[in-house]
Nucleic acid binder design. Structure first.
Length: 195
DNA sequence: GCGACGATACTA
DNA sequence: AGTATCGTCGCT
């Protein structure tokens, strides 16, 4: 077992990468409970993921890559753990994580997370909805294309407490393939979109 | 170069 | 239902 901190972090990243290196419909529920850690500000901010959606790649009419690769969606073709952030409706950013294998553009949209406030964890802020989550974590398109486990990454992933129960529902806000149950959420979280 | 539209979220 | 608000992409 590695005892040096750097080696241990490396081992943690490898384990998380194995979770991400699977098809979106597997990786999306697996991501529930994991912690997004935002660095770059005065203090790191951690947010516990409580709601995700799977986007299946070129065969999924609701996916950004449905009509093929473009400069914007290119990060989705990167290795698992690559960050894809896009801008919608002239005001919101949405965070995605590329999953599966490099060259296979499946991804997971992070729809909600509980931002852990003070050291005591008492004042829990919620980022309900992908737009608000990005606003609360200060994420924008400058992060798109970066990788969660790069040494100096401003956004990383850590292990966290798994949910007691996982709910399944249709994806939010799409018109195509709207019936598919590809949205996953922590049933106990108040931060989940209410729809 | 142009225009339609979107993986949003709030208010009424 | 209405709306704020703009980057992206397909098409001309």
């Amino acid at each position: 077992m590695p005892s040096h901190p750097t080696l241990r972090h490396r081992a943690d990243a490898d384990r998380l990468l194995r979770g991400l290196a699977r098809p979106p419909e597997k990786a999306a529920p697996w991501l529930l409970g994991k912690l997004l850690v935002r660095r770059g500000g005065r203090h790191p901010v951690a947010a516990r993921i409580v709601e995700t959606e799977a986007y299946l790649g070129e065969g999924d009419p609701a996916a950004h890559v449905f009509r093929g690769r473009t400069p914007r969606n290119a990060p989705l073709f990167g290795p698992p753990g690559t960050v894809y952030v896009y801008f919608v409706y002239g005001m919101h950013h949405c965070l995605n994580i590329a999953v599966d294998r490099e060259g296979v553009p499946g991804c997971v949209l992070i729809r909600a997370a509980e931002v852990l406030g003070g050291a005591d964890g008492r004042d829990t802020l919620i980022g309900r909805g992908p737009g608000r989550l990005c606003r609360v974590l200060g994420l924008d398109t400058r992060l798109s294309g970066r990788h969660l486990f790069d040494p100096d990454s401003p956004l990383t992933l850590q292990d966290g407490p798994r949910p007691r129960a996982v709910g399944v529902a249709p994806r939010v806000g799409i018109t195509k393939a709207a019936e598919r149950l590809l949205r996953f959420f922590d049933e106990d979280s108040p931060a989940v979109s209410r729809r």
